[in-house]
């Protein structure tokens, strides 16, 4: 299993590099905006508008697209180069291959999300005195939780769509479904409703992907 994961990471190293670079740029943007606000603001309440917009809108949007692309690339490459057919001849099962793939996808999402969460927490503690930071902590925890679920849902959709042949239809369908999922965030917001719907989407998508991957001839 560890070998499979290692192989998946090596194969998708470019995606990890893109994710790390994106996280670095994103953190840099919010740090600059927070420092700028800190220098000019006379109120301890409220946070930088740029940081708020970045965390509430841009991060979910870009991370969901990145995740969908990750899932799509993983499955399309597998189908195109018949990687699973080759791996199945070795001492492993399809379930292990799929689990290793999903683990790698989750790792890609966390490569972006975890540094952003850590940076936001540090900025909040540094530039907002407790209990002001405590009031915002609950809100940001919800934002990051929903962002993670949204990214995971888009990744699972990418896994499903990537198994189809036809690159144009695959990309178009994945783009449409990702935008539809992101619009779900606009509709439902960062509340419990959104979390529940995204969780059911993830379970349904993974169930369908699992069934398709296990039963399709390689």
């Amino acid at each position: 299993m560890f070998t499979l994961i290692k192989r998946e990471i090596e194969q998708n190293i470019i995606l990890f590099a893109i994710a790390a670079l994106y996280a670095a740029i994103f953190i840099g943007t919010i740090v600059v905006s927070v420092i700028e606000r800190q220098a000019h603001s006379s109120s301890p309440m409220g946070i930088s508008n740029t940081m708020m917009l970045a965390l509430v809108f841009y991060l979910p949007l870009t991370l969901s697209l990145l995740s969908a692309i990750t899932g799509l690339v993983q499955m399309y490459t597998d189908r195109d180069k018949k990687l699973s057919a080759f791996l199945s001849t070795l001492a492993t099962t399809r379930i292990h291959i799929l689990l290793a793939r999903i683990f790698t996808g989750v790792l890609t999402i966390l490569t972006v999300l975890l540094p952003v969460v850590a940076a936001s927490a540090i900025l909040l503690q540094l530039f907002h005195p407790a209990p002001v930071s405590g009031i915002y902590t609950a809100f940001f925890m919800r934002v990051f939780a929903v962002t993670f679920l949204l990214a995971l849902a888009c990744y699972c959709i990418g896994l499903q769509i990537g198994w189809n042949r036809g690159i144009v239809i695959t990309i178009t369908t994945a783009l449409f479904l990702t935008i539809a999922l992101f619009s779900l965030l606009i509709i439902k917001g960062f509340g419990l409703e959104g979390c529940l719907i995204l969780a059911v989407i993830i379970v349904a998508s993974l169930a369908r992907t699992w069934r398709k991957f296990i039963s399709t001839s390689l």
Binding site: A138, F139, I187, G191, E193
Partner: peptide, 19 residues
């Protein structure tokens, strides 16, 4: 629209805080 309902300054903060 849910995204507009989740401004922390209008929800959690203002429910049990005042400054």
């Amino acid at each position: 629209l849910g995204l507009l309902q989740n401004d922390p300054l209008s929800s959690e903060l203002y429910k049990t805080a005042s400054y």
